[in-house]
Simulated assay, not measured.
Amino acid sequence: MEEAEFGIKPHQTTISRLLKRLEITHKKIKAVAAEQNQELLEQWYDDSRFWRADQIIAVDESAFNEHTGHRKYGWAPQGLPAEMKILLKRSPK
């Protein structure tokens, strides 16, 4: 898709080197309540409105829990945990 739309086809080695240079590592995800900091979440959404398509790289990882859809591992800067925000509310039965 990237090649058809943008005329580029990034190689896995190129992406790996970029992640290493940015000191981003692959680690087990820690679940964190999504409700805990709504202000920061809204700020992230506001900031992302100004990103251009050529500034975004999407990495697809298909390892996830079939029952919940949650991933077991994720990417994060070195020294920081990989966190996933989840809703802690239970659905009514």
Rank of each mutant, 00 (worst) to 15 (best):
E2D: 13
E2Y: 14
E2Q: 08
E2N: 08
E3D: 11
A4F: 11
F6S: 05
I8P: 01
I8Q: 04
P10D: 04
P10L: 14
P10N: 05
H11A: 15
H11K: 14
Q12A: 15
Q12Y: 08
T13Y: 10
T13P: 05
T14G: 10
T14S: 11
I15N: 03
I15F: 02
L18W: 05
L19R: 01
L19K: 01
K20T: 03
K20Y: 03
K20G: 02
K20S: 06
R21Y: 03
L22P: 01
E23K: 07
E23H: 07
I24R: 00
I24H: 00
T25V: 06
H26E: 06
K27F: 00
K27S: 03
A31T: 07
A31C: 08
A31N: 12
V32I: 13
V32W: 02
A33S: 11
A34E: 10
E35R: 10
Q36H: 09
Q36I: 14
Q36A: 12
Q36R: 11
N37M: 06
Q38Y: 09
E39G: 06
E39Y: 07
E39P: 04
L40A: 12
L40I: 09
E42Y: 06
E42S: 10
Q43W: 08
W44V: 13
Y45F: 12
Y45L: 13
D46A: 14
D46R: 10
D46M: 07
D46G: 12
S48T: 10
S48V: 05
W51Q: 12
A53H: 07
D54T: 06
D54I: 04
D54V: 04
I56P: 02
A58W: 07
A58Y: 08
D60Q: 12
E61G: 14
E61M: 14
S62K: 15
F64Q: 10
N65D: 15
N65E: 12
H67P: 05
T68H: 03
T68S: 07
G69S: 04
H70L: 15
K72F: 15
K72H: 15
Y73K: 05
Y73S: 08
W75I: 03
W75Q: 02
W75C: 02
W75S: 01
P77Y: 02
P77M: 02
P77T: 01
Q78S: 02
Q78C: 00
Q78K: 01
Q78D: 01
G79Y: 00
G79P: 00
L80D: 04
L80Y: 04
P81G: 02
P81T: 00
A82S: 03
E83I: 05
M84P: 02
M84C: 08
K85A: 13
K85H: 08
I86V: 14
I86P: 01
L87T: 07
L88G: 12
K89M: 08
K89P: 03
R90M: 10
S91Y: 12
S91P: 11
P92L: 06
P92A: 09
P92G: 06
P92Q: 08
P92F: 08
P92D: 08
